[in-house]
Simulated assay, not measured.
Amino acid sequence: MRTPLSEKKLQELIEKIEPFKVGFDAIGEHVIITDENANILYANKGVEEQTGFSIQEIIGKTPADVWGGKMPKDFYKTLWHTIKTEKKPFVGELNNVKKDGTKYWQEIHIHPIFNHDGTIKFFIAIEPNITERKEKEKFKEEFISIISHQLKNPLTVMKWTLEILAKIEGATSSDQKRIKVVLENTQSIIDLVNDLTIISKIGKIDTQTNIDLFTVINSIIEQAKVANRNTVIEFKKDMEPCIIKSNSTLSFEVFKNLIFNAAEYSDKDHGIVNIHLKKENDYYLFSVENNGIEIPKNEQSKIFSKFFRASNASDRKESGTGLGLFIAKMICDYFGWQISFKSPTDKGNGAIFHLKIPI
């Protein structure tokens, strides 16, 4: 709830912020200083240029009175909880509207300024315009979505056709080999399209639901067993149930990439994958370990890089997009999960990946 300022109180506060204004007038970016209730006490020229409102129209009002207030209620609830209750800086992206009705995007950085007794004195907000960047991101998302849609259907048809051809009796050994190569390449392109689709969604999906990790992990294990019939996959859990609140699509991708990666790169003849899930203090700890090839020491710093495959990866799996672990790391960073790995494991081979998930 806004607390309006009297003219006298407004002038008193404006005089108090005089020392804070030094330097802000010369900055081209949007900068405002408000009291603890968001009443604007100072705005630089950058605010006029970005919003179209004059300084006279801005002073004494809140951002919501002029260009703001267009984001969902939960956004502002989180913002105010961060800066006023936790008394911490806040960083976020928000959509605002100029005086002429034009919508634009800003990256907002709000910093509390305190009195000697620890109470909040002012807020300083620096809000660069990121409209151009957001438009480029939107174009990239739409482009990937269109390309994925246009490629996926014909690639799937090609795969089905090749699978049928591979089963036809009478084909020569040479023809069978050619069909196998084309089929594998087609599957690689399908995997790449799927990976690009997931990448385009990271940071853009806000829907969260309660997810039972046991159900998710067991579902992925069953899929991995079918795809890797020579690999034994064991799942040990120390408690149940194990419920987290997250986005189901992206969460599934993290566990799928880690479990499939472990199964695919386990020992070729006698693969073993051990999965463990337990609770420790305020975290769920997940690990997946295999008995396959080690990740070369001089390449471990690149393991989460885009399109990277270890130099010895083809010894176990001929092809791959090099995006699985990159995607897992991107999603974990977005969620605030911690992902790490060790190779070789304490058993002297393979690799073990860890997830630390806040409850």
Rank of each mutant, 00 (worst) to 15 (best):
M1L: 13
T3R: 10
T3A: 11
K8T: 15
E15K: 15
E15N: 14
I17N: 09
E18H: 11
F20P: 01
G23N: 09
D25M: 06
I27A: 08
T34I: 14
D35W: 10
N37F: 09
A38S: 13
A38D: 13
N39Q: 05
I40N: 00
Y42V: 11
K45Q: 11
Q50H: 08
F53A: 07
F53C: 03
S54L: 14
I58N: 02
A64Q: 04
W67H: 07
M71L: 01
Y76T: 00
K77H: 12
T78Y: 06
L79K: 08
T82R: 11
I83L: 03
K87A: 05
P89S: 04
V91Q: 09
E93I: 13
Y104A: 03
H109Y: 14
I110H: 00
T119W: 05
T119Y: 06
I120R: 00
K121W: 10
I124S: 00
P128K: 05
N129D: 15
I130S: 06
E135T: 02
E135G: 00
K136V: 03
F143S: 03
I144R: 09
Q150K: 09
K152L: 03
L162H: 08
L162A: 05
L165E: 02
G170H: 14
A171K: 15
Q176C: 06
Q187R: 08
I189L: 14
I190Y: 03
D191N: 15
D191K: 11
N194A: 08
G203T: 07
K204H: 11
I205D: 14
Q208F: 06
N210C: 01
N210T: 11
L213R: 03
F214W: 12
E222F: 07
K225P: 05
T231K: 01
E234N: 12
E234S: 12
D238Y: 06
M239R: 07
E240V: 11
N247M: 13
L250T: 05
N257K: 10
I259F: 10
N261I: 05
D267A: 12
D282K: 12
Y284S: 08
Y284K: 13
L285D: 02
F286V: 00
S287L: 03
N290A: 05
N290M: 02
N291W: 08
S301E: 10
K302N: 15
K302T: 04
F304R: 09
F304D: 07
A310M: 00
N312H: 06
A313Y: 11
T321Q: 02
K329R: 15
M330E: 13
C332Y: 05
D333P: 07
W337I: 00
Q338F: 10
S343W: 01
T345F: 06
K347A: 12
G350D: 01
H354C: 00
I357A: 02
P358T: 03
